[in-house]
Design a protein around this nucleic acid. Structure first.
Lengths: 225, 225
DNA sequence: ACACTGAGGTCATGGGCGTGTCACACGGAC
DNA sequence: GTCCGTGTGACACGCCCATGACCTCAGTGT
């Protein structure tokens, strides 16, 4: 079960949030001050931080910044609670680094939706950076490296993009259009030959493992599942 | 490129939104009234609808309801623009069926983030190409694979399309015309023999399971229910 | 019961289309 | 300049597809 730490100084609101997020299937921890929140974060980092902008001791903005600058918490999703819609720009933007915000008063349903949305988004992002492996073949999106057993396979940007697109959905057929929009970006027009050629080079470099990329005639390509 | 229809009666705001969403990689169409919006929606449905709550003729809420109740537009994602944070509950809830909302004033960056988030969410939902099964026969639209028990049956694109069309409506007769437009695409003219021949090969490959495809003389074909 | 009719099954065949492959041009990085 | 990554046109090849001819068979009328 995913854990959420809620930080606010209003007990009523805390209970409301706890009740609803619990009903939505989360485990909810509470903190009524910035100090308490920091302590809780150090003790056991939650999966998401729900943070009021106004706290008795430390400003929520400051707390958010600290979380972002702490290496072990930098990835922690943060949703800000605020009474003022005007502050939204600063909150969501890069300045503070919050992932989303909710303005008071908010509906419990909306809050739960936001929480789930942020968690879902983070899950997909995390997924997209995870190393992709299949048998001897290993692709590291972080370092842009490809390994075949112990051997380092140098790939070009397009080759890497193609392989990542294919390996990220093993067994699933990727149409040429899909590959184009995913690797080349939308509204880019290149010939169908282009994909073929890059795939040829990719298969070449992969040697035997090149067979893992199957051609589905008339449809697209598929990475062996 | 994904298209967004923006409906608002303030020209300045429209231009601001257009500029920023265009910069974010979307194609943006504009409408300044509910009537104009409805006409545009009928003419060429966009990928997302950005809708002000306050319009000169039809209330945004009403427009949103109409979109939801129209079968061909029911899946269209809608984001509402509103000046009043208080109305948020009704908007996001089931009552109206909007997918998200943005309160004015909003930052362009935030708007773009919301738009992308909603589109991403919809994309993942649409991807649910559930496998089609009947007894030993299993068809996987994602991977373009067909299984008969443990055995992998290689199908060509047309054969696969035919089988999917038939299996997706078990028990229902599919006319030749229907199969043509579904598998071959509209405005394609091929002989009636063509379908017969493909079906023959399909039945051949399926062996005993080929009997699951029944001929309904004078009408079309039907997959056993 | 019989023949007729027309829809669908079967088959062989030609060609078109999708893909693999290669060579080369282009352009940016160094 | 050279090298590398990239995109493209040309060409080959083979599968798949569409087609017409012929066959089979079910439905129908007499």
């Amino acid at each position: 079960m995913q854990r959420i730490l809620v930080v606010d100084d209003e007990p009523d609101l805390l209970e409301l949030v706890r009740f609803n997020l619990t009903a939505a299937g989360f485990r909810v921890d509470l903190a009524t001050s910035g100090r308490a929140a920091l302590a809780a974060l150090r003790r056991s980092p939650p999966d998401l931080l729900l943070l009021d902008l106004m706290l008795p001791d430390i400003p929520g903005t400051e707390l958010c910044r600290r979380v972002r600058s702490a290496p072990e918490l930098a990835e922690l999703p943060v949703i800000m609670l605020t009474a003022k819609a005007e502050e939204v720009d600063r909150i969501v933007g890069l300045e503070l680094g919050a992932d989303d915000y909710v303005t008071k008063p908010f509906s419990p349903r909306e809050l739960a939706l936001r929480v789930k949305a942020v968690l879902r988004r983070q899950a997909t992002e995390r997924e997209s950076n995870a190393p992709l492996e299949h048998q001897e073949l290993r692709l590291e999106p972080d370092s842009y490296r490809c390994w075949l057993g112990q051997q380092d396979i140098p790939l070009t940007a397009k080759e890497f993009g193609l392989l990542r697109a294919l390996m990220s959905r093993p067994g699933r057929v990727m149409t040429r259009d899909r590959l184009l929009s995913e690797v080349w970006g939308r509204d880019v027009t290149v010939t169908s030959r282009t994909i073929d050629t890059h795939l040829k080079r990719l298969r070449e470099k992969l040697g035997n493992a090149g067979n893992l990329i199957e051609t589905v005639r008339g449809v697209g390509y598929r990475f062996a599942s």
